[in-house]
Simulated scan of single mutants.
Amino acid sequence: MLHALLAILACQLIGEAASHALALALPGPVLGMILMAAALQLFPRFADILRPTAQGLLSHMSLLFIPAGVGVVGHFAAFEGQGLGLALAIIGSTIAAIAVGALSFVAVARLTGSRDE
């Protein structure tokens, strides 16, 4: 497990270093994720090493949302008077995300030649 965590953090560190050194607009963690995806494709054994640790992290991912929830509750007064705007933004972005997802699915289905039977 320690080796897997070290590999995950090393990919993120390399991504951060590359992002800062090359002054890229792409965030370091995204570069690290691209690096890890490439490593997983090139070295299948790497995936076998990371799988148990990654599954463990993913199973507890909901814990990462607790600080955001506490922040919202802690600053609830700042949202006062913004309720209607927030509700419209949340509802609108949800509808837009569903629509874009559906349209993307249809486009990919057409490109791959899938047919509805």
Rank of each mutant, 00 (worst) to 15 (best):
L2H: 13
A4G: 01
L5Q: 09
L5Y: 09
A7I: 15
A7T: 13
I8K: 10
L9I: 00
C11H: 04
C11K: 01
C11I: 00
Q12H: 13
G15L: 08
G15C: 02
G15R: 00
A17T: 08
A18D: 01
A18S: 12
A18P: 06
S19I: 12
A21E: 06
A21Q: 09
A23W: 01
L24V: 11
L26E: 15
P27V: 12
P27Q: 15
P27W: 15
P29D: 06
V30C: 04
G32Q: 01
L35T: 03
A37Q: 03
A38P: 06
A39M: 14
Q41G: 03
L42M: 08
L42I: 12
L42S: 11
L42N: 03
F43S: 11
P44R: 02
R45S: 09
F46E: 01
F46K: 01
L50D: 13
L50R: 00
L50Y: 04
R51F: 05
R51G: 05
T53H: 02
T53C: 06
A54C: 10
G56N: 11
G56M: 03
L57Y: 07
L57P: 00
S59H: 01
S59L: 06
S59F: 07
H60E: 09
H60R: 11
M61V: 13
M61W: 05
M61D: 02
S62L: 02
F65H: 03
V70S: 00
G71L: 07
G74R: 02
A78Y: 02
A78C: 10
F79G: 00
E80A: 15
Q82T: 08
G83S: 07
G83H: 01
G83F: 04
L84D: 04
L84F: 09
G85L: 15
L86T: 07
L88Q: 14
A89V: 06
I90N: 02
I91Y: 01
G92K: 10
T94D: 14
T94G: 11
T94V: 03
A96L: 05
A97L: 06
A97M: 06
A97P: 03
I98N: 09
G101V: 03
G101S: 10
L103H: 13
L103D: 07
L103P: 12
S104G: 12
F105M: 07
F105H: 10
V108N: 04
L111N: 10
L111F: 13
T112W: 07
T112S: 10
R115M: 10
D116F: 11
D116G: 11
E117W: 02
